[in-house]
Structures are given as C-alpha cells and as structure tokens.
C-alpha cells in the first residue's frame, strides 16, 4: 500500500497544478476560441455564428493600429533592449570598480511595476512638465520633444519606457553568461591576435546563443502582454494611436460589451505569438540535439 503510494507520489503532488493549468490556461483558451465564433456581446452566448466577429475585427481601424503597433513595439523593444542590455553587460564585464553597485542600479527598473514606470515617464515626457519644459527653461527655446502627444510617435514613447525598464534585466542575464565563458578562450583569442571587439563579436556572443533565446522569450512575452505600461503612459492615446492588442482586447471585452470581438482579438494575439515562437523554438531546440 505504502509502496504504491510512494510510487504515485510524484503524480499526486503534480496533479493539482496540472489540473489547474489544464482548466484555467488551456480550457479557457478553448473557451475563448469558441466564444470568438459566437455573437457574444455583453454576456457570452454559445450559438455559433461563423467568422463574423473576425470580419468585423479586421474591418476596424482601431484593430489595425493596435496590431501594427504590436509589431513596431515588440520588434523595437526586443531588439533595442537586447542591444543595450548586451552593451551594458560587455561594458560592465571589463572588471570595473563599483560593478556591484552599477549592476544593482541597472537592474532596479525591473523591480518597479509598469504602472510606476509609465506614470514617471509620462511626467518626464509631458511637454509642459518634463524634459521639454526643462530644456526650454534653461534657455534652449527651440527644444521640442513632444512624442507623447504626437499620434505618429506615441508608440515609440512606449518603446523607450519599456526598454528603460527591461534592458537592465537583459544586462544581468548577459553578464552572468559572460562570466561563465571560459577565460582561457578569451586568452587564446587574445594570443591569436583578435581585437577586443572581434573577441566579443566573433567568439563570446555567438557562444551565448542560449542566453539570446532566453532573453528573446522573456522580452517577447513582456512585449505581447504589455498592457499596463500603455494604460499608465499614454492611455492608448492620443486617440487610439498607441494602443496595443491587449489594450484593444480589454477595451472591447470589458468596456464596450463586445465579448465576441474581444475573444477574436485574443485569438489573433495567440496565433501571432504561435507563428513567431513555434518555428524559433523548434529550430533552437532541434539544433541543440545534434550539437
């Protein structure tokens, strides 16, 4: 009896969380998928209605803006955060003084919630309160930085704030990877006559592919679920110029009683993520197997 219990113990321990995930993650994905094919408005209805919600979704300019914003935001955010994080890590890796303190300073933004980041950056970038007003008060009258109220530029403001928040974390990730690189490899490259740039670009960074993967996965999920940053920073504005699909989905589902369209937009987000992540994960993980 006890033997069989011991044998089953791992399954028994894992079962509750497995069940919860099964129901609340995958179950609700399926539920959302189902709802997106119905006529649901304020409350979900379960009578199938074909692809009507999707046609409605794609005809909305608001969705177009949100969806293309996602690509602008996600690609810029991921690329810039990785580049800055990487650069900071390489610079911190030069055995400089007060490295511990600097590392903490750079890592700290990650400890702040997106709401705080958004609010702080909103004040800083507000033309009549923040940077623009400050530089003009110093006498640089022509200085202008009003991206936050410019409907073509407001999404880039979101990128700036998000990069500020995440690049310290990317730095920590890369720094630990740099530290685990065999010092003898660097010595060998040095003796081979490679310059410092060449050592980093040609040898160390390529050997850190797994870290790039981790950084990419973490940053892309941060990018896709970005919601609170937009809410706090621009409120999606001006107009709806800086909304992201998550904001769109929230707006439709919970504020405009359009559960069907909300569900359809959620499914589109899922499809987008899957389309990008699955091939990437597949190639990375398959590559691992044959070295």
């Amino acid at each position: 009896m006890l033997d069989r219990l011991a044998e089953r113990l791992p399954q028994i321990v894992v079962a509750p969380s497995f069940l919860l995930i099964l129901v609340f993650v995958y179950g609700f994905i399926i539920w959302t998928g189902y709802v997106s094919f119905t006529k649901s408005k304020m409350l979900p209805v379960y009578k199938l209605d074909g692809l009507r919600q999707y046609t409605r979704l794609f005809s909305m300019d608001r969705w177009d803006v949100a969806y293309s914003n996602l690509f602008v935001f996600a690609s810029l955010f991921i690329i810039v955060a990785i580049i800055i994080g990487c650069l900071l890590a390489v610079l911190l890796d030069q055995h400089i003084r007060a490295e511990g303190a600097l590392r903490t300073i750079y890592l700290y933004p990650m400890a702040i919630s997106f709401i705080v980041t958004g609010t702080a950056w909103k004040w800083m970038l507000n033309p009549s309160l923040g940077l623009e007003a400050y530089f003009q008060s110093l006498g640089w009258e022509s200085f202008s930085f009003n991206w936050i109220v410019d409907k073509d530029m407001s999404i880039y403001v979101v990128v700036i704030a998000a990069v500020w928040q995440a690049s310290g974390f990317v730095m920590a990730l890369f720094l630990s990877a740099l530290r685990s690189v065999d010092q003898e490899i660097i010595k060998a490259a040095y003796l081979d006559g490679a310059s410092n740039t060449r050592i980093y670009m040609g040898i160390i960074l390529p050997s850190m592919r797994p870290v790039f993967l981790s950084a990419f996965v973490i940053l892309s999920h941060l990018a896709i679920k970005s919601f609170d940053l937009v809410v706090a920073l621009t409120g999606g504005g001006p107009g709806y110029a800086s909304t992201l699909p998550a904001n769109f989905m929230y707006e439709m589902t919970f504020r405009r009683n359009q559960i069907g369209i909300g569900a359809a937009s959620a499914m589109m987000m899922l499809a987008t993520v899957a389309a990008i992540m699955i091939p990437y994960l597949y190639s990375e993980l398959r590559g691992k197997k044959n070295g």
């Binding site: 065999d182 003898e184 490899i185 010595k187 060998a188 490259a189 040095y190 003796l191 081979d192 006559g193 040609g202 040898i203 390529p206 050997s207 592919r209």
Partner: peptide, 19 residues
C-alpha cells in the same frame, strides 16, 4: 601578446565553441 609570436595550448583546450 599577438606580436610576441608565441602560441599557447590551454588546459581546457579553449577552443572557440561556435567555430
């Protein structure tokens, strides 16, 4: 070092893993 015209073999081999 690169102008001293020496070569070194390391304990951990120190091969470049990506090449």
């Amino acid at each position: 070092p690169k102008n001293r015209d020496i070569a070194m073999v390391f304990q951990s081999y120190a091969l470049y893993p990506n090449m």
